[in-house]
């Protein structure tokens, strides 16, 4: 199997690569459209800030290209947010694969960002949680979130229920860091590779 990890200016992808190494999967880290197009699976990871990341993707024209991909795509953390319609983080228009807007957590009692292990609950069709329990713990670090809507495939509760995972056609997304979410995260990645 041929996996492409999309190379852009967001984040620390070392953890994602090591997670794939642990599974024994081979991958290429690239921003070359031809290589990405030819891959069996595409991973769009990221840790970072929305407007800077989108500016880079636009410059490379990847913002037009990524939504046209037909093979399974897994986006995590900021990658997931960039596939949504708009982010409140520096008022950024995103790629719009998922028809939902990203907003910031607001709370007077809970700490923002949401950092640590929280439970997620499968909702509707969720191909990546196959073989897992309805409720599992995964590791989050984020201040912005997607509300629960029709393409939400797992929910989490912090301040209010939000989308922990999204699934629409060939696009799969997780707000949490599957690559460092223990055995649960490993299973989610394995399920994606097995699609």
């Amino acid at each position: 199997m041929n996996i492409a990890i999309i190379k852009y200016n967001a984040g620390n992808v070392a953890s994602v690569m090591y997670a794939l190494d642990r599974i024994g999967a081979k991958y290429t880290w690239t921003d070359d459209e031809k290589v990405i197009q030819a891959a069996d699976k595409v991973i769009f990871p990221g840790v970072g800030e929305a407007s800077t990341a989108m500016a880079y993707l636009k410059e490379k024209k990847l913002d037009q290209f990524i939504p046209t991909l037909k093979q399974p795509v897994l986006a995590t953390c900021i990658g997931m947010q960039l596939l949504c319609k708009h982010s409140e983080e520096n008022n950024t228009d995103c790629m719009g694969v998922f028809d939902v807007n990203i907003t910031r957590f607001q709370s007077n009692t809970l700490k923002i960002p949401h950092v640590g292990w929280n439970s997620i609950q499968a909702r509707g069709t969720n191909d990546l949680m196959k073989g897992l329990n309805e409720t599992e713990f995964v590791y989050f670090v984020h201040s912005f979130y997607a509300p629960v809507y029709q393409d939400t495939s797992a929910t989490c509760n912090y301040v209010q229920p939000f989308s922990a995972m999204l699934q629409k056609d060939n696009f799969f997304a997780a707000q949490f860091h599957a690559e460092i979410s223990g055995k649960v995260g490993q299973k989610i990645i394995q399920n994606f590779l097995d699609l």
Partner: peptide, 8 residues
């Protein structure tokens, strides 16, 4: 460590 460990 990163190769072996699957938590933060």
């Amino acid at each position: 460590v990163a190769r072996q460990v699957n938590i933060p």
